[in-house]
Amino acid sequence: MHDTQLVMYDEDFRKVRTVIQKLVRDANAKGCFVVDRNGQLIGEAGEMQGIDTTSLASLTAGCIAATCGLAKIVGEEEFPVHFHQGQKDNLHITLVAKRIILVVIFDDRSSLGLVRLRVKKAGGELARVFEEIQKKADQGDAGGSGTPFAEITDEDIDNLFSV
């Protein structure tokens, strides 16, 4: 059942962070998140103080899942781009490579057009990074004895609950 387990090493993480840091600068955005489709926060960049990133990740994944469900009902495979307009801040949400969600938070220092343009490029770069991660996982580099789980004992698990 864990065929699609996501394992991310330092090198991959740095690549993701580089892409989203550049996106924040180029799009003049407040911040940017990368979220797994199942609601796990993968990376963030920009002014994220005061934002509950864990909740944001979970709700973004829920939002994408719900709208993809809607898409299927009307005969579309998915709605890959979402835009939520607020009074001050706006959210631009894009589904990348069918697996990763790219969220950009921006205000009136930027514009929807600029964000769209920059997201397109960054989305392509992220898709390549995650393709590599997937390839590694398929080849077994990222799974098997490479995971920290292989070494854990029942005692380790029990200790988690004894504190």
Binding site: L6, V7, D10, D12, N38, P148
Partner: peptide, 15 residues
């Protein structure tokens, strides 16, 4: 689907 992040040394699981 668990998510193992070696960079932040975190394991995330969904129940």
């Amino acid at each position: 689907m668990s998510f193992i992040n070696y960079s932040s040394r975190e394991i995330n699981c969904k129940i």
